[in-house]
Design a protein around this nucleic acid. Sequence first.
RNA 1: GGCGGCGUGGCCGAGUGGCUUAGGCAAGGGCCUGCAAAGCCCUGUACCCCAGUUCGAUUCUGGGCGCCGCCUCCA
Length: 465
Amino acid sequence: MINLFDTAISDTVPVVASREQTVGIYVCGATVYGPPHVGHGRFALVYDILWRYLEYAGYKVVFVSNVTDLDDKIIDRANKENRSWRDLAVESETQWWRNMELLNVRKPHHTPHATDYIVQMVELIVKLEEKGYAYRLGDGVYMEVGKLSSYGLLAHQSLDSLKSGARVSVDTSKRSPLDFALWKAAKPGEPTWESPFGPGRPGWHTECVVMASSLLGDDFVLHGGGLDLCFPHHENERAQAQALNIHFAGHWIHNGLVEVGGQKMSKSLGNYVTLEDMFKEHDPSAYRLLVLQSSYRSPVEVTPELMEDAEKALERLNTLARRLEDIRKTANATDLELTDIMSEADIEEKKRNFVNMMEDDLNTPSGVALLFTSLRQANALLDRHDIRSGYQLGKFVVDTFLMLGINSVAPAEVMDPMILELVRARDEARLKQDFVKADELREKIKLLGYMVEDSQSGAQLRNTH
RNA sequence: GGCGGCGUGGCCGAGUGGCUUAGGCAAGGGCCUGCAAAGCCCUGUACCCCAGUUCGAUUCUGGGCGCCGCCUCCA
């Protein structure tokens, strides 16, 4: 049973009763108004890893993550650029999915768009108004949070203390500075929909409640998002659900943020690196490994140095994968069955340990550590020519990384006849002990982009980058 | 001001009241190799400071210092 830290109760608790139960997960996704940055990449990776793990562990998962395609920021930016907000949203969303693909983040089962749920949002606001939780002002409909005794659950603060900390807003007509917009009245140059409260558009907090409960029902298991969404966004989602007696999220989980020089990366601070820029310099898989090597709740600094470290670690995995592939090609299946040096029970135990770590609040750093320890053991076994054990243990490592979304398939074989000829000539030179010539040829091959490494099964080629 | 979190060896980063330790990167030594590379083996006198609890604390408690997040849009 997986245990996760639930922000609502500040404790790590079992989140799923049984593996038969379907785990509905809703994660607040992207607002599509610009290129996604490294911080967005992290949350996408974290929940992708959680989802993959849950399935691996035998849970049934329905994963939903929305696309906010209607929001102040989109409208502002589109107006600034003198273009249609829809175009901007569509273009940014395309960019989003392209980046997700590069990160090997799987597409959620459902990716609801805010603009497709306006009718349901209006219905929800009507209900809130009927129940007396909402009131109208000139510029929209507001949620009166003071009517909810449990407001502040996620912030871990009382209404009063939240109020005292609230920065004074220019607009003081609200009954409380904490009251938030459910419906924003139409303004010139903004998209609008008709409603009983006049033309306008829904507020962001309403979008997520409606999409989550529409697709997952009233009582889904997990609601996730970046730590910075905890308050007020998630608090406000909760408030609306509670006002309408919707059970809503069973547990609230939040991922830590990416930091730059000790400060959180965000669009508003302008200290962000886009994923696309990062991928120009680094392997997207290395970013996934970096994310796996830190606790999902901790802040993480993403520097070029750390990315390079992760890339080097990844290279060890790829080397092992290549080694296994060479073995697989030359051996029969029965040659690779386990011996008593490394029995099936030994590998099963490693799997169990791995699962235990993951179920302990998704402790991926420990899980990855176990995999690297196994990786070293596998290499050691192979070095000692215990091919069966080494192969099976190595396979466990490679397969488990694959499960986590890191694909370490050995690179395609080099077919370039010119390079193959150089390699052949070098082999010949080496046989004749003409090492000067052999080294010259190795240099030549290196210039063509390949490292030559001599192994027991002959010269091996691999990309130099 | 309120609330929450963090401070581990050169860097990143798990974890634990003692026991045997994480793991990755870097560094040093060795094995292997024509040389490399890869791989393996060995090496690190780590737990912010001060008190307290304890036979014993990096781990628990209290205080201090420092850093961060949220209280406004933000993954």
